[in-house]
Nucleic acid binder design. Structure first.
Lengths: 230, 230
DNA sequence: TATCCATCTCAGCCAATTCTCAGTTCCCTC
DNA sequence: GAGGGAACTGAGAATTGGCTGAGATGGATA
């Protein structure tokens, strides 16, 4: 297994979450370690020296904010993506994004988290990858959170953007419905899988009205983004 | 019997299923072990250390999800293909394709399962194997779910695709009707065996219109895919 | 509280796919 | 070359899968 990508430390007291996130990160080639407590996080940072930490604000012993404070106190500048519950803590975390850190509210979707991971790593210079993705005359810019088709800017909602992004990253590869649902929708989404169809329909209307239709249905399997074949 | 291929562990409480799957895997050169309980699966993983596990979600003692959780907890990263009933479980299995794991709903066809096995092993293991199969000027690309003949893309339905894929994997080997029906159709397919002829006819029309005809009938036995011999 | 907007649910419609069946053709044997 | 079994193919019935419009829900904002 590939473990020579950037090191990422994942800290949460729920093993379900750390596992989910760790698996997704490993799959993308990151070198991942996990911890379940604030204290564990601090030791892991000094031993593992990760390029990025994903840190739950709510932890059994020392909370995430305090972990950040202690690390800063010790001169440790590792960038952090905080995980927070939707309610509470809102204001506490708000002041945190100033330092280039970021936060994601639970429940999040994997695509959303991965997008933030890339943005933060890019900002901190450890990645030279550009923030732009494209296929034919479709362009997507992560930093600007902007999509263009045929030169025209297209307004997308959050979910539409995540869906398009996931399709674009995997351009040319057929994605199954469950792959898409698992990556683009919140990890505890338990609803009707037909939302996906609704959103594909939205996307087509917004970005696929120009000529070569790029979003293709593979009946009985899933969807692909690609230039039409002869 | 060839047992030096990758190790695969098959776990299901119905012996019919484990046997069916085990036989198909052995036939393709895998080294197979089976288990009937969640506990059995966990011990087997540590003793047999398989490259892949095929795991029923519904088990008498510990369910499949819990098995995954415990293995992960113990730092065991074996990739998994889950087997699930079509109804229910939708939400339980949800979120599993994130780490590169996958699932197949019962009743499945062997060909479908084998395709997933290859995909998962390719993703997790040596990147060496490509997702492409070919014979003469016939090409099949699993990632894109795309077939080309003589350079031209060919539109195939799902069943046509599975059939062609099965013939292509076994190119040069004569397959009997029942082998084909057992592999390409769902294992509880109870219909008329003449569907196969219909589908061979469809395939010939779509992919075998170019010159050297590759799909050959072996009268009284079955079909082969091969370049015609002089 | 009222309003807006993103998200999700659902049902009706349409089209593609799968399967059945019957008539025809092909091939082997005698 | 006749007969019979096997395979091929076309037509259409049954089923499934996917698309879309309309509207419910719920969170955010003013």
């Amino acid at each position: 297994m590939n473990t020579d990508g950037p090191r990422v430390l994942v800290v949460d007291d729920e093993p379900n979450i750390t596992e989910l996130v760790a698996m997704a990160l490993r799959y993308e080639g990151f070198n991942v370690k996990t911890a379940v407590t604030g204290r564990g996080a601090i030791t892991a940072v000094s031993q593992f020296s990760p390029a990025l930490m994903i840190l739950d604000v709510m932890l059994p012993d020392i909370d995430g904010i305090e972990v950040l404070r202690r690390l800063n106190g010790a001169g440790n500048k590792v960038p952090i993506i905080f995980l927070t519950a939707k309610d509470a803590t809102e204001d506490k975390v708000h002041g945190l994004t100033v330092g280039g850190d970021d936060y994601v509210t639970k429940p999040f979707s994997i695509e959303e988290l991965m997008a933030r991971v890339r943005v933060v790593l890019r900002r901190h210079g450890s990645e030279t990858e550009s923030s732009k993705l494209s296929l034919a005359d479709l362009e997507l810019d992560d930093d600007a959170h902007e999509v263009r088709r045929h030169g025209h800017a297209v307004e997308l909602t959050n979910t539409e953007y995540r869906l398009l992004r996931y399709l674009l990253i995997n351009a040319g590869r057929v994605l199954t419905r469950s792959q898409i649902l698992d990556h683009v929708w919140h990890y505890d989404f338990g609803g009707d899988a037909s939302v996906l169809e609704t959103y594909v329909s939205y996307l087509r209307r917004k970005v696929d009205r120009y000529d070569p239709p790029l979003i293709q249905t593979v009946r009985g399997v899933g969807y692909v983004l690609r230039t039409p074949r002869k």
